[in-house]
């Protein structure tokens, strides 16, 4: 079953300097029990995507087309605020990037974990027992005592583990992890990734994992989505994309990953050019200005072209790029 199915989703923001097309015709699917990575530069629409799924778009943002199917039925785009709130935290949980600020500084960890369970009929004691069990699962030592403590009494890595415990407390079917390891140092990052993988298997939920760290995506994710300037340019299994990238942007992105360089370069490679202005999107292919394959076909927006199995790419030249390894 597909847990999250986003079809043709477009989101606009109305700003003082014009309408900003933050997402355009985004298609993606998160199957049950799979970890799907979303990779892309800052400003590519990763956060807008999450906020749209959560129903937490800023007031000036609106969905202009498309649908978001959750567990095959409810279209989240048309769900009202109460229906959406009933899903958040219960069925769809989120771990945010900044562990330092993600917890309320004046309420104890126990109080915050109890509040998340406000819809459950359990007694206060039973709720606390569940919180303790969850804290133990994320390997917080001495959880009974820690429950009464406040966020500032924990280290950054512990706070992120508490945030994960909070997210998994209600056994959601979808966990959205928004760069959960970006603010942590490398050793902690590995520990959190392993913890997430372990808990995902225990609980049996799907994960939408946002990151700009290709190594983490390769390590953790079954499938991956490459976003560029508000579009999903390539979507497929992590293996297919890493070994047989078909979109020119994906290829360049992979070529820029320092971890994948085969020899020491005096200068790290970059992608020439800049992101297009989303207030004035180019007609046709979004990557044409920075692409070496651009020709007259690219003046029209390419559809999502299947290139083998579930592997799709939004490029007219997907055929030409076959076999050219990144």
């Amino acid at each position: 079953m597909t847990i999250l199915d986003v079809k043709d989703l477009s989101v606009d923001f109305v700003t003082e300097t014009g309408t900003l097309q933050a997402l355009r015709k985004v298609n993606l699917a998160v199957p049950a029990n799979r970890i799907v990575g979303v990779v892309g530069e800052s400003g590519c629409g990763k956060s807008t995507l999450i906020n749209t799924v959560l129903g937490l778009l800023a007031e000036n943002g609106a969905v202009t087309s498309g649908e978001i199917l959750f567990e095959g039925q409810s279209d989240l785009v048309h769900l009202d605020a109460n229906g959406m709130r009933a899903l958040r935290g219960q069925k769809i949980a989120t771990v945010f990037q900044d562990p330092m600020g993600a917890l309320n500084p004046v309420l104890s960890v126990g109080r915050q974990m109890r509040d998340i369970q406000y819809r459950s009929a359990l007694s206060r004691k039973e709720k606390d027992a569940r919180s303790i069990e969850m804290l133990r699962k994320v390997r917080i030592p001495d959880p009974e005592r820690r429950l009464a403590q406040f966020p500032h009494e924990f280290s950054g890595g512990m706070k992120q583990r508490i945030a994960i415990a909070m997210a998994l407390l209600m056994q959601p079917s979808l966990l959205i992890a928004d760069e959960p390891t970006t603010a942590l140092d490398a050793t902690l990052e590995v520990a959190i990734i392993e913890l997430l993988k372990d808990l995902q298997q225990q609980i049996g939920c799907s994960v939408l994992f946002i990151s700009h760290h290709l190594g983490v995506i390769a390590e953790l994710c079954d499938d991956m989505i490459v976003m560029y300037a508000g579009e999903v340019v390539e979507h497929g299994s992590t293996r297919d994309i890493f070994h047989n990238a078909r979109h020119p942007y994906t290829k360049k992105l992979l070529a820029c990953d320092p971890a994948r360089l085969s020899r020491r370069e005096p200068q790290l490679p970059t992608i020439p050019g800049t992101l297009p202005d989303l207030r004035d999107r180019p007609k046709g292919c979004i990557f044409q200005a920075r692409c070496e394959f651009t020709d007259e076909a690219c003046a029209e927006m390419p559809p999502d072209i299947p290139v083998g199995g579930a592997h799709v790419t939004r490029c007219w030249h997907a055929g030409k790029t076959t076999g050219a390894r990144a």
Binding site: A86, R88, I116
Partner: peptide, 15 residues
């Protein structure tokens, strides 16, 4: 951002 977290956990707006 902790208020965003609280919203992401579906807490009632009044709380």
């Amino acid at each position: 951002s902790h208020i965003r977290t609280a919203r992401a956990f579906g807490l009632p707006e009044s709380r």
